[in-house]
Simulated scan of single mutants.
Amino acid sequence: MQEIVKTIEKIAVLISEELKYADFGYASTQNSTGDTQLKLDVLSDMIIEREFRGVECVKALISEEKEEMLSINENGKFIVAYDPLDGSSLVDVNFAVGSIFAIYEGEISPSSLRGAVYSVYGPRIELCVCLGDTPKLYRLGREGKFAFAKELILNEKGKLNATGATQKGWSDTHRVLVRTLFDEGYRLRYSGAMVSDLHQILLKGGGLFSYPATSDHPAGKLRMAFEVLPFAYIYERAGGATSDGKNNSLLELEISKIHQTTPCFFGSKYEISKMHEIYQSEK
């Protein structure tokens, strides 16, 4: 898998360069879920596909920007599922955004996950790499190479609350959860870019990121294969916990279609325990 990670390092540098000067406008196309694509989404997807075509161990690609799985090397054993530019709608206001990669062996299933990587394009270019053990943070140096910075470990309890989805669609139960955390002194930290918000919680030591079921999106809005599962893989190996609001781990879920969505909660163990306590008591 090191060849895959090295390819992602190269991709991160290429996309970060495009972010500095590229056209921020909309393309004339839509992705699989009907969202109008930004030109940067399309460009980032093209960069990733081009770079992975030369990686023989990668059998196929799954992208937020592609309707179907793309086969590239029939003798490869890994499938890379990715969101090429998470938070791309925030590029025009110069917020940090990123790319998310899940590495599956043979099939798209939580049990087949062998690694997860995400990049953050902010004041610094950073990579979080998790290949089965504790996730590790790398930063791009002046010489153009990524250097190890530290391991990412979540505390038992955090201080941040990043809660997504349109508030008018929240359930009363979710409103209670959010209010409870704020009453306990949690600080709101939510940008609308999943990568940036989850990255902040990881680096600050803990908290809760939630994107619940809502009245307009009862199955959630975030995609399992290339958004939810890779971050679940990272958070649980950082000592945290995850859930869809009912189960004990997002990694218990099964995927029946590549663009399947789910409600999701990521955080320190205390916040996920508090979520279960409130969600069960409010039934």
Rank of each mutant, 00 (worst) to 15 (best):
225 A>T: 15
12 A>H: 08
62 I>S: 04
188 L>W: 05
226 F>S: 01
136 K>G: 11
243 S>W: 11
14 L>Q: 15
163 T>N: 14
79 I>S: 06
257 K>L: 07
5 V>A: 08
81 A>C: 04
170 W>N: 10
201 I>Q: 06
15 I>G: 04
113 L>I: 08
40 L>M: 08
198 L>E: 00
258 I>T: 06
56 E>P: 08
245 G>T: 10
263 P>Q: 08
63 S>R: 01
241 A>W: 06
207 G>K: 02
160 L>Y: 12
226 F>P: 01
111 S>I: 05
89 S>W: 10
267 G>T: 09
29 T>S: 15
138 Y>K: 09
238 A>E: 04
28 S>P: 08
187 R>D: 08
59 K>L: 13
68 E>P: 00
85 L>F: 05
167 Q>V: 14
77 K>S: 14
50 R>Y: 12
127 L>I: 02
258 I>S: 04
36 T>C: 09
182 F>H: 04
130 C>S: 01
66 K>C: 01
62 I>K: 07
121 Y>K: 00
260 Q>C: 08
208 L>S: 03
105 E>A: 02
161 N>C: 15
83 D>A: 08
63 S>F: 00
179 R>G: 08
127 L>E: 05
194 M>S: 11
136 K>F: 05
72 I>V: 12
203 L>T: 15
94 N>I: 11
270 Y>A: 09
161 N>E: 13
119 S>A: 15
202 L>I: 01
194 M>K: 06
56 E>K: 15
109 S>H: 06
132 G>V: 03
47 I>S: 04
43 L>P: 07
246 K>Q: 12
81 A>M: 00
272 I>E: 09
145 K>H: 13
172 D>K: 14
